[in-house]
Design a protein around this nucleic acid. Structure first.
Lengths: 252, 252
DNA sequence: CAGTGGTCTAGACCACTGA
DNA sequence: CAGTGGTCTAGACCACTGC
């Protein structure tokens, strides 16, 4: 088994190897995935890790499955790691482009009721707010409004945000994100959006509101990102075998 | 164990019971979930099903987790079954409202290049297209453009679409959907959108484009649904433990 | 250091699919 | 009817968390 990271668990290495065979085209869409028994034999492991690896690929939308029915390679989009969905910087790099940013505002102020509710802190608690225009290969793509709890935001106040990734900075101080909740809808551009994205007030924008959490469950960042339409979309792969924490919600 | 459906697998019944305890408030957000050992003892099963049930709850965003760290109940949104995300009818009912619809057009025509590509058939093959205004509790919510392959669409031609769920109809003929791919973005209303949704041309709409598949991997339905903003949003729970087939994509 | 979850093995039975 | 995946058990070792 040609494994990239020999230190990780068997099921993880197995998943990476199978994923490599799929995205490299070695196994083409429509091909039948080897049976669990074959994979057990090929890699010399028991059935547990094999099933874990296959379940992960199914969740990622790379293969199909079903009782009695042999799995088949699907023509899914290449899966992105968790970080790539959290960080504009990571996402842009992962898609082969160069991320850029221009910080419009970086301020410490007391949390208003909305921010306090989303970040699970008290109104009036100090928070740090960032307003940045994000670009990909120099093209204006998104306007980012992010609010951080003081413990995280204070680390950003003396940073040059135009040249550093916020996520990298926080990670460097031991603040990791392991969970996030996203709410996606459409909204007309307000005056601020219009000014920085170069569109008329009221023109359509794709909005992603997000709250990110640390392993111990504390909310650290609440964001309101507004994307220019036509440049960005969100893709979701969904199946009854592996239900996704995906909900169509009424207004909020 | 108070189980709703004694015929289903242990891990499924276990998940439902634990989910019930969470959504009913019996276990409040912030409470610690009993250890795997306790659950094994309480339900008299081995560790496998217990872990399967807990993994499902983690994926659904209902509980946290982590090596050595005892799981904690989160304040997540109530999870929706797979069907509820596919069918406007199911979703509306699941959220306690009454679905309605007004069919604008129901037509058989040859597939154009775009529809053929999405449905994996040849341009010129017959398809059935449906244009419907969808309402919830009588409020106009969404304009649905759906294209079906002939095998499915032919079942709809003699239906009264104003009173029946398309998904129910197809299900009744043995056409089940088990997988779907969704692409979500924002777009300005075109003339058709404007006329049926009652908004000016160019005003922001939330667009969901979707392709649905049967168990044997055939694409059956390609949809382009446009939601009025402020009434509907998409919610996604995301974690590094349980990566979600969720991708931010460049334009399409 | 005790308890917890993460991982792995070996073996078993069943339901379903497809030739 | 043979092969496949879905499910379950019993037992084991390890890494990490939190007291």
């Amino acid at each position: 088994m040609k494994c990239v990271t020999p230190a990780s668990p068997i099921h993880e290495r197995l998943r990476l190897e199978l994923q490599r065979r799929i995205v490299s085209g070695e196994w083409a869409p429509g091909d039948r995935v080897p049976s669990e028994a074959s994979l057990r034999e090929e890699f010399g492991v028991s059935r547990g890790p094999v099933r874990q690896a296959l379940a992960a690929l199914r969740t990622a939308g790379l293969i199909s499955g079903g009782q009695g029915r042999q799995a088949v390679v699907l023509d899914g989009a290449v899966p992105q790691p968790f970080d790539a969905f959290l960080s504009f910087t990571e996402w842009t790099r992962a898609t082969g482009r160069t991320p850029g940013q221009r910080t419009v505002e970086l301020a410490r102020r007391p949390a208003d009721a909305i921010a306090a509710g989303r970040l699970d802190c008290e109104p009036g608690d100090p928070v740090v707010q960032v307003l940045r225009v994000r670009t990909a290969d120099g093209v204006v793509t998104m306007l980012e409004r992010a609010t951080f709890i003081w413990e995280a935001g204070r680390l950003l106040l003396d940073q040059d945000l135009d040249s550093a990734s916020i996520f990298d900075t926080l990670r460097g101080h031991g603040l990791h994100f392991v969970r996030a909740r996203h709410e996606i809808d459409a909204i007309g551009a307000d005056a601020t959006d219009a000014a920085h994205l170069g569109v008329p007030v009221g023109s359509p924008l794709l909005r992603e509101r997000r709250v990110s959490y640390t392993p111990d469950g504390r909310a650290v960042e609440a964001a309101d990102d507004r994307y220019l339409p036509g440049l960005t979309s969100f893709l979701i792969e969904n199946s009854s075998h592996n239900p996704v924490p995906l909900t169509r919600g009424a207004a909020s």
